[in-house]
C-alpha cells in the first residue's frame, strides 16, 4: 500500500497558507452560507515521484476577488485575468501540495493549468483527499487525486 499523499488537515493548511500569502485572503473553515453556485473549475495534473491531479472548484464570486487581491486594488482585472489568475492559483497550490509529499529525489512536473467556467471538469469518483475553504465571497473545494488516468 502506498502512503496517502496528504491528510485533510495538511491539505487545508497548505491551501490556507497559499491563499493567504498569494491573495491575502481571509480563509475560514466554515461559511454562514453554503449554497453558492459553482463559478469555475481549474485542473492541474502532476507527474514525477507520484502522479495525480488537483482540481479546484470555486463557488460564489471567488475567482475575481482572489485575482484582484493578488494583483492589488489599483489593477484592472478582466475576464481573461480571472481565468489566467485562477489557473495560476491552482498551479501554485498544486506546487505547494506536491512539496509536502516528503523527500523525493527528483522534481515533479506540473502541466499547465486548465480552467473552465462552471463545472467544466468532473470530480474524481474517489479522490484521495478533499478540503473546502471559505472566503468572504464564497468557497473553494479542493480535490487531490492520485493516478495518471487521462482527464476528459
Amino acid at each position: 500500500m502506498t502512503t496517502p499523499m496528504l491528510t485533510q488537515e495538511e491539505l487545508m493548511n497548505v491551501a490556507t497558507s497559499v491563499l493567504e500569502d498569494l491573495c491575502f485572503a481571509l480563509v475560514d473553515e466554515e461559511s454562514d452560507e453554503d449554497d453558492f453556485p459553482v463559478e469555475a473549475t481549474a485542473l492541474v495534473r502532476f507527474s514525477g515521484p507520484r502522479d495525480g491531479r488537483l482540481l479546484i472548484r470555486t463557488r460564489g464570486d471567488v475567482a475575481g476577488a482572489l485575482v484582484r487581491d493578488m494583483m492589488g486594488e489599483d489593477e484592472e482585472v478582466g475576464d481573461d485575468d480571472r481565468r489566467d489568475g485562477l489557473g495560476e492559483i491552482a498551479n501554485v497550490l498544486c506546487g505547494n501540495i506536491v512539496a509536502q509529499f516528503g523527500p523525493v529525489d527528483s522534481a515533479f512536473d506540473l502541466e499547465a493549468p486548465r480552467v473552465g467556467i462552471g463545472d467544466a471538469f468532473p470530480s474524481d469518483a474517489s479522490p484521495e483527499v478533499c478540503a473546502t475553504v471559505c472566503v468572504d465571497e464564497g468557497m473553494i473545494e479542493i480535490e487531490l487525486s492520485s493516478g495518471g488516468a487521462p482527464v476528459s
Binding site: 506546487g95 523525493v104 529525489d105 522534481a107 506540473l110
Partner: peptide, 9 residues
C-alpha cells in the same frame, strides 16, 4: 520564480 522549490528542483 516557481511554485516548485523542492530540494530536487
Amino acid at each position: 520564480v516557481s511554485t516548485d522549490n523542492s530540494p530536487a528542483r
